[in-house]
Design a protein around this nucleic acid. Sequence first.
DNA 1: ATTTGATGTAAGGAAAACTAACGTGAATTT
DNA 2: AAATTCACGTTAGTTTTCCTTACATCAAAT
Lengths: 128, 128
Amino acid sequence: MTNRVRRTMPLLPISIVMQLTELTARQIRYYEEHELINPARTEGNKRMFSLNDVDVLLEIKDYLDQGLNMAGIRKIFDLGLLTENVKAEPKHISDEELRMLLREQLKHQARPFEQGGFKQSDLSRFFH
Amino acid sequence: MTNRVRRTMPLLPISIVMQLTELTARQIRYYEEHELINPARTEGNKRMFSLNDVDVLLEIKDYLDQGLNMAGIRKIFDLGLLTENVKAEPKHISDEELRMLLREQLKHQARPFEQGGFKQSDLSRFFH
DNA sequence: ATTTGATGTAAGGAAAACTAACGTGAATTT
DNA sequence: AAATTCACGTTAGTTTTCCTTACATCAAAT
């Protein structure tokens, strides 16, 4: 569950997503227009992407390379939704709960500058 | 190594870091001024934070709560740097390498197709 | 020869982030 | 007690990033 939270947390502005995917802003918006992705928006209407969004975008790229078009890709995604995703029911979690979650995760790990060790990232778990 | 990459990859704008840490922009900039963090900058001079930066900020918060001041915190950080962190020398990694890394990580994961549309992602309410 | 699909590009506007500077209240120092 | 310092808050003015809308392009399908 926490994993799904991490993957779906809107963290990245479009500029970063462009770098990560090598897609242009135009492309990314076009895919949204065709309902292949559905990034969150800030109060000011700016798109904010999750790691899952990035993942989906890379998948879209892949399918496009394989010659599929928007409709084809969406079909595939829709099928995926019907089979796999049914059980990924949305949970409601407040801001505060989220922060606590984050903090808890951070707590239960050695901090880089603490006694024992320079261990692996606390937050790198976002990238599972 | 890939782990370090993930932790140090500048991904997050200050607004997101504010939400993740419950710090104000003023505070975050102040800590940078005092060399407790050192976020990357975009071409246009906007701060872009890594997950490691977020981690450090949460640590700063913690130390402040414990009554330390800037100098104290920096001392602690400097000590940490001297002992453990020496080996964390900055490596140069190209955009392309980063993308490949990311892709690899994403490949080794189940892909929940939860992009369906109406269900808000859990954390999208960071943007109210 | 047209239409369609996937994108490029430009214009104008708005949001988000920036620096610089001054304000503030609680501690601390003089 | 007055002055200074610290860790911010706040405001102003500016720049960068992102937005929508709309038109352009060019290959492929019709």
